[in-house]
Each structure stands twice: as structure tokens, then as C-alpha cells.
Design a protein around this nucleic acid. Structure first.
Length: 141
DNA sequence: GCCAACGTTGGC
DNA sequence: GCCAACGTTGGC
């Protein structure tokens, strides 16, 4: 079981839209970056990920779960691009902002800080717990 | 809206 | 295989 963080501009695909998909989940398409794709290839069904709003909000707003194996990205014919599906698990009661993450010494090595532009990133178990705690989740999701 | 950071593309 | 040009991301 591994942890991840996925980014979305709420203008394009918001947490509310993700939640509206419910158990069916939604294909995480549109990723056109090798490192991000490689991270998705490493995912397994049941892995958890933070849902981060970039640009507007700049905060971790929810938790999602991987609910499909890697498969071709339906928005392109280019066989290089693959993706997985995610379904919403729960809200973060108090969204954790980028500023808070940057201000927290335990998160200084988090990819969100060090690899700002990577849109699908790994999160360590230690980082996962810290963010859950900051977000007001009693039990790490 | 600007611009810095960084990934990708393409000419050589 | 190098590197300049270009496009995109994303914080501010």
C-alpha cells in the first residue's frame, strides 16, 4: 500500500466533481508527463492519494483511492499515455494549504515542496500521517 | 497577468 | 547526444 498526491486545477476538474462521481470513480486522464505517468504505473488498486487543488485554493481538499489498474488514456491515441481511475473517499475537514505544508518542518522534503510541478507524486507514510493530522482527520484515511 | 522553473522538442 | 527554443505549470 502506497500513498500519492494528485493535482487538479479546480477550474478543470474539482473535488466536488470528483465526489459527484462516487463509487464509479473517474479516469485520471490528461497526464502528459513521464514521471507522473510512471508514478501511476506504480499504483495498485486500494492505494490512497491526496486530492490537491492547484492554482485556486492551493490546498489538499480530499482523499481518493485508486480503483482501476493502469489502462490507456482515453483522451489520446498516443499509446505512451496511460492512467488509472480514482474514486473519492472522504473530505479533509480542514483543508491543508500549500503555505501550511511549507511551514511544517516534517514536510520539508515532501514532493509538493521539492517537485512543485509534478502532477502525480509519491507521498511517504510519515508525510501522509502528518497531513491527515493537520487536516483534522482523526484516523489517517 | 506575470514570470520562474522545468520538461519536451527538434535542429545540428 | 547536445543544447537552444519553446510550451506548460503553477505560485504569487
Amino acid at each position: 500500500m502506497q500513498y500519492w498526491l494528485i493535482k487538479s486545477e479546480p477550474d478543470k476538474w474539482s473535488w466536488d466533481q470528483q465526489k459527484a462521481k462516487g463509487e464509479a470513480g473517474e479516469e485520471w486522464d490528461g497526464i502528459r508527463n513521464y514521471q507522473a505517468r510512471n508514478n501511476m504505473r506504480a499504483m495498485e488498486i486500494g492505494d490512497k492519494a491526496f486530492f490537491y487543488h492547484s492554482n485556486i485554493g492551493k490546498e489538499v481538499v480530499g482523499v481518493v483511492e485508486v480503483c482501476s489498474d493502469i489502462h490507456p488514456d482515453s483522451t489520446t491515441d498516443d499509446p505512451r499515455w496511460e492512467c488509472v481511475d480514482f474514486k473519492a473517499v472522504c473530505d479533509i475537514p480542514q483543508p491543508v494549504t500549500l503555505a501550511q505544508v511549507k511551514a511544517e518542518p516534517r514536510l520539508e522534503k515532501m514532493s509538493l515542496v521539492t517537485s512543485m510541478r509534478l502532477s502525480v507524486q509519491p507521498v511517504t507514510e510519515a508525510e501522509w500521517k502528518v497531513v491527515c493530522e493537520m487536516g483534522g482527520l482523526k484516523e489517517p484515511a
